[in-house]
Amino acid sequence: MSETQHKLFTLKFDIKNKLGNDTFETDAEERAHITIKPEICRDCPHKKCLYACPTRCYNLIDGEVKFQYEDCVECGTCFLVCDQGSVSWSNPQGSFGIKYQLG
């Protein structure tokens, strides 16, 4: 069986539908804890953030990487997979962001 027939490629799954189960306290946009530099992303050869982020906070819209901070669960993945220096990562200010009820 060829690799591309693997079920992983045929999943029709939108993670955003799941995030309604999570509790967030969203801070103001100007205080977003992660920012990216679009000019760096434009030339990024892999754009791995699009795939690695477990809540799909990174999306390609009209050819540009767009970051959306509201759904971020603060795992740090994008910071690690970005080897281009575009992602500046900090924790949200205290009490904001994801609030796990179970963990």
Partner: peptide
């Protein structure tokens, strides 16, 4: 293992699979 996650597959796809 993030290092082995290829482009084109979302991390959460592995979970869903």
């Amino acid at each position: 293992d993030l290092d082995t996650l290829p482009l084109g597959i979302h991390s959460y796809d592995v979970f869903e699979y």
